[in-house]
């Protein structure tokens, strides 16, 4: 009788969904997907979304990134009124865009604007993987291009935080051409002798990795960020062998000479400020 009270009467096994696994318990508490430890969300946010026990870097929204990197009150957004089109008439494409606009509060997968880092004026672009996996179509390419142009025009450093699955399939060749467009703009910025810093965050792959993300005067990345050209699954199918666990991580890239440094999130702003300061030319 009493035993019955404690007996498990569950008829069905509950299989938590991926989302539940990651975010349970929602709201007040957050579970780290890496070490599975549970911390208060407040605690996590205070640590700039870095797990307090294992240092796992959670994904950040563009707004959170701006708060972390840009001096308070200095960010001035540009081109937030640009709108996505549907050049290949893919059904549902614009509906999905609208959904992500509502979800993220952004007009597209990148936010661009002017701001300061410890008093150093820069032009800033930050991609957000919560919006269509940060994929690059016409608007993302154009916003980044205009940001680079603004930096060239005002003779300012350009800093981008990348997070992208690559080119956006739904815009076809136009997406591929954004790689060329951002490159011609970067070339002008480069010819003007100006500073470009690329910070790769999780994930930076495909056409974004194979264009502006990889050609900073300084290439930084966040710990453990996935960075690479081709997808892991495609490579495994091609070479028919298992890949090392750290394959295409920031640390893997560092080891193979593709990065200047892997920078912990809590040191990111200071690191950028350090580079910006050195580029001011020192004291008289």
């Amino acid at each position: 009788m009493l035993k019955d009270l404690f007996a498990k009467k569950r008829k069905y096994a509950t299989i938590p969904s991926d989302r539940m696994k990651q975010e349970v318990p929602e709201g007040l508490m957050t579970k780290c997907p890496e070490c599975k430890s549970i911390m208060t969300t407040k605690e996590l946010n205070k640590a700039h979304k870095v797990c307090v026990s294992c240092d796992h870097h959670f994904r950040m929204t563009a707004q959170e990134r701006i708060q972390l990197i840009i001096d308070q009150g200095t960010f001035r957004e540009i081109n937030q009124d640009m709108k996505t089109e549907n050049p290949l008439d893919f059904p549902d494409y614009l509906d999905r865009i609208d959904k992500d606009r509502a979800k993220t509060g952004m007009n597209e997968a990148v936010m661009t604007g002017h701001g300061e880092v410890e008093g150093n004026p820069i032009v800033f672009a930050v991609m957000d993987a919560h919006f269509r996996m940060g994929s690059m179509g016409s608007v993302v390419g154009e916003k980044i291009t205009r940001a680079i142009e603004a930096a060239t025009e005002e003779r300012k450093p350009f800093i981008i935080f990348t997070a992208s699955g690559g080119a956006r399939m739904q815009e076809g060749i136009l997406s591929l051409m954004q790689m060329a467009k951002t490159s011609v703009a970067l070339r002008r910025h480069h010819e003007a002798g100006l500073l470009f810093i690329s910070v790769m965050t999780h994930p930076t792959t495909g056409g974004v990795s194979a264009s502006f993300a990889s050609v900073g005067d300084y290439n930084f990345a966040e710990p453990k960020a996935l960075i690479g050209f081709a997808g892991r699954r495609i490579i495994e199918q091609t070479i028919r062998q298992e890949l090392p666990e750290d394959f295409q991580t920031a640390e893997f890239l560092l080891k193979h000479g593709q990065l200047d440094a892997v920078v912990h999130r809590k040191k990111m702003k200071a690191t950028l400020a350090n580079v910006l300061d050195i580029h001011k030319g020192g004291e008289e």
Binding site: S209, F229, T238
Partner: peptide, 17 residues
């Protein structure tokens, strides 16, 4: 571009970019 381990190790992305 070749999607293989060796290509990634030697910086396929950077070479294209």
């Amino acid at each position: 571009a070749y999607p293989g381990m060796s290509a990634e190790e030697r910086g396929q992305s950077e070479a294209i970019a």
